[in-house]
């Protein structure tokens, strides 16, 4: 195998990986402020694509359609938290997680009924032939995906480290009661983090649509891969989620290269299990120490 060919596999892996990473960031955001896994994250990814297509077909320019798609999805995220999760917020993590599963089913079915069963697409952000680079072909849309991933992870890291709101989010993840005692409006923090996670998922979903098309049923796979990426890297840490996504994509691509495409998902899953076995906190994540 030539080096150009090997590099092509790496490029392919990082392309899928960026998608997984963007979805993983949404898991991390919600986990960071609530300590729960939001299984509706994949549906936010789906809604971003489907709604942007809807606005684009209404005649909006691509940029506006994308913006409207992200804003509407963020609205769905906020409403979902306010109407479905907050009324049961004291019921414990398991109940909340199950509510997110129910929410994902509702979003999926409603989308199927409102927008129909057929797949649809958006034009590429910057159309043109793929860029040749030392014998390796790179799609322009992949550059957008990488760019978005970098911007998203930088913005989130800044949010966590440097802003008052970010500190409030981190405080919430440690203990809602303590955060509330410190004067933090925990309900607002949780709601905003759902809105942000939805917006992020939507951004990923619409950025991928020119490459893969979108439809009402794309959320499940995206959610599963994004969840795996978040776990692999380490939940709660944006940089770890992105690394988890890229590693997962690379693993799949290299399994195709050196083993067989039939087993690529199985191989990625086995690696995930091994990592969880050896490092339950993920590749990057720090073990959470329980203090009594």
């Amino acid at each position: 195998m030539g080096s150009a060919e090997l590099l092509q596999y790496v490029v392919a892996g990082f392309k899928s990986g960026a998608i997984y990473a963007l979805v993983a960031l949404g898991f991390t955001l919600v986990y960071g402020s609530t300590g729960i896994i939001n299984f509706a994250q994949g549906e936010f990814f789906m809604l971003g694509g489907v709604l942007s297509v809807f606005y684009y077909r209404l005649g909006l320019p691509l940029l506006l359609a994308a913006l409207a798609g992200v804003v509407t999805t963020a609205g769905v995220g906020l409403a979902f938290e306010r109407l479905a999760l907050r009324p049961r917020r004291d019921a414990g993590a398991l109940v909340l997680i199950i509510i997110t599963i129910g929410g994902s089913m509702v979003m999926k079915s409603l989308t199927r009924h409102i927008f129909g069963p057929d797949e649809a697409t958006l034009p590429e952000f910057t159309p043109g032939p793929s860029i040749a680079f030392g014998g390796v072909a790179i799609e322009r849309q992949a550059l957008w995906l990488w760019g978005l991933t970098i911007v998203a992870v930088l913005a989130l890291t800044w949010l966590y480290r440097k802003t008052r709101f970010g500190r409030a989010m981190r405080a919430c993840s440690l203990s809602h009661d303590a955060a509330r005692l410190m004067g933090i409006d925990t309900a607002r923090v949780v709601m905003v983090s759902f809105g942000l996670a939805a917006a992020l998922g939507a951004l990923a979903g619409l950025a991928v649509t020119p490459l893969t098309q979108t439809a009402w049923d794309v959320g499940a796979t995206a959610g599963m891969k994004g969840f795996a990426a978040a776990i692999l890297g380490g939940l709660g840490n944006p940089v770890a989620s992105v690394i988890g996504g890229l590693v997962l994509g690379l693993l799949e691509s290299l399994s195709v290269a050196f083993l067989s495409s039939t087993y690529k998902d199985a191989i990625a899953l086995i690696v995930l299990l091994i990592v969880l076995f050896l490092r339950p906190q993920g590749l990057i994540g720090r073990a959470r120490r329980e203090k009594v």
Binding site: E5, Q8, V11, S16, V218, T221, L254, S261
Partner: peptide, 20 residues
């Protein structure tokens, strides 16, 4: 002879193999 799963979003790796 390469395969992919329903729901996969990228087949570049399989096609790189075919290209070779």
């Amino acid at each position: 002879s390469e395969t992919f799963n329903p729901g996969d979003t990228d087949m570049t790796a399989q096609l790189t193999k075919i290209k070779a």
